[in-house]
Computed example of a mutant assay.
Amino acid sequence: MQTNFLPVLRNLVSAYQAFERYSAPDLRSMGLTMTQFDVIATLGNQPPMTCKELGEKTLVTKGTLTGVLERLESKGILERKLNPEDARSQMIGLTIEGQKLFEQVFPAHLKHLEGAFRKLNVEKLESLRASLKSLEEIF
């Protein structure tokens, strides 16, 4: 049994946990969870999309997505309309208030993340991107 990948797995999980510890408090200060931000960031400046498309473009599982959409809809951030091309599905998009929220929180959170990522030079960022892409491809 080959287990030489375990240190890589541990570093991957640790890196994600560190990212969450850095990112989540900033989003909470804006009244959002990481999942809500992911949905808002995906829908921002985009035409409405189906729930399936939204699920494919975010890091949110289908079961979690339903609850997140309901909460964001109840806050007036997004709206769901029947899909004119397929009445079995809905089109999901940001409301005017949701788009304003996106325009406020997206650049602010990117600036926060830049505080950490600017510690890496262009070559290191590209190396990390390529390594993570290789890891993604094996699964």
Results as ranks from 00 to 15, higher is better:
residue 110 L to M: 13
residue 109 H to Q: 08
residue 139 F to S: 09
residue 95 T to S: 03
residue 138 I to K: 15
residue 63 G to A: 09
residue 49 M to G: 00
residue 73 E to C: 06
residue 139 F to V: 04
residue 76 G to N: 11
residue 75 K to F: 08
residue 46 Q to G: 07
residue 43 L to C: 11
residue 51 C to R: 13
residue 18 A to D: 14
residue 47 P to W: 04
residue 68 V to Y: 08
residue 92 I to D: 01
residue 54 L to Y: 01
residue 77 I to Q: 01
residue 60 V to C: 06
residue 42 T to I: 01
residue 24 A to Q: 05
residue 104 Q to T: 11
residue 89 S to F: 08
residue 137 E to D: 05
residue 111 K to D: 10
residue 42 T to W: 00
residue 3 T to V: 11
residue 10 R to M: 02
residue 50 T to Q: 01
residue 123 E to S: 12
residue 119 K to T: 15
residue 66 T to S: 12
residue 31 G to D: 12
residue 101 L to P: 00
residue 29 S to R: 14
residue 104 Q to M: 09
residue 132 L to R: 13
residue 41 A to C: 11
residue 23 S to R: 06
residue 122 V to I: 06
residue 117 F to I: 12
residue 131 S to G: 06
residue 129 R to W: 14
residue 30 M to N: 11
residue 41 A to F: 07
residue 19 F to V: 02
residue 111 K to L: 07
residue 131 S to V: 03
residue 50 T to R: 04
residue 14 S to E: 15
residue 51 C to T: 12
residue 52 K to R: 09
residue 18 A to I: 05
residue 19 F to Y: 13
residue 84 P to R: 01
residue 18 A to V: 03
residue 68 V to L: 03
residue 69 L to E: 03
residue 7 P to N: 00
residue 91 M to N: 13
residue 116 A to F: 11
residue 122 V to N: 04
residue 83 N to L: 02
residue 53 E to L: 01
residue 94 L to N: 00
residue 71 R to N: 13
residue 35 T to L: 07
residue 121 N to C: 09
residue 51 C to E: 14
residue 93 G to A: 07
residue 19 F to N: 09
residue 85 E to S: 14
residue 48 P to A: 10
residue 19 F to Q: 11
residue 109 H to A: 03
residue 44 G to Y: 12
residue 45 N to G: 02
residue 98 G to R: 05
residue 128 L to V: 13
residue 61 T to A: 07
residue 117 F to R: 09
residue 41 A to V: 04
residue 73 E to A: 15
residue 39 V to S: 00
residue 74 S to P: 06
residue 127 S to A: 15
residue 104 Q to N: 10
residue 9 L to N: 10
residue 49 M to A: 02
residue 134 S to V: 02
residue 64 T to K: 02
residue 20 E to K: 15
residue 22 Y to T: 04
residue 130 A to R: 13
residue 131 S to H: 12
residue 9 L to W: 04
residue 61 T to V: 05
residue 32 L to S: 08
residue 83 N to P: 00
residue 64 T to D: 00
residue 111 K to C: 14
residue 22 Y to E: 05
residue 14 S to C: 09
residue 119 K to I: 04
residue 129 R to P: 08
residue 71 R to P: 10
residue 127 S to Q: 15
residue 75 K to H: 14
residue 33 T to N: 05
residue 82 L to P: 06
residue 2 Q to G: 08
residue 113 L to K: 10
residue 96 I to Q: 14
residue 124 K to V: 13
residue 21 R to F: 10
residue 77 I to V: 13
residue 50 T to K: 03
residue 51 C to K: 14
residue 2 Q to D: 15
residue 81 K to E: 15
residue 25 P to R: 11
residue 23 S to Y: 00
residue 68 V to F: 05
residue 5 F to G: 14
residue 98 G to M: 04
residue 12 L to N: 06
residue 122 V to R: 14
residue 121 N to S: 07
residue 58 T to K: 01
residue 87 A to Y: 09
residue 80 R to N: 02
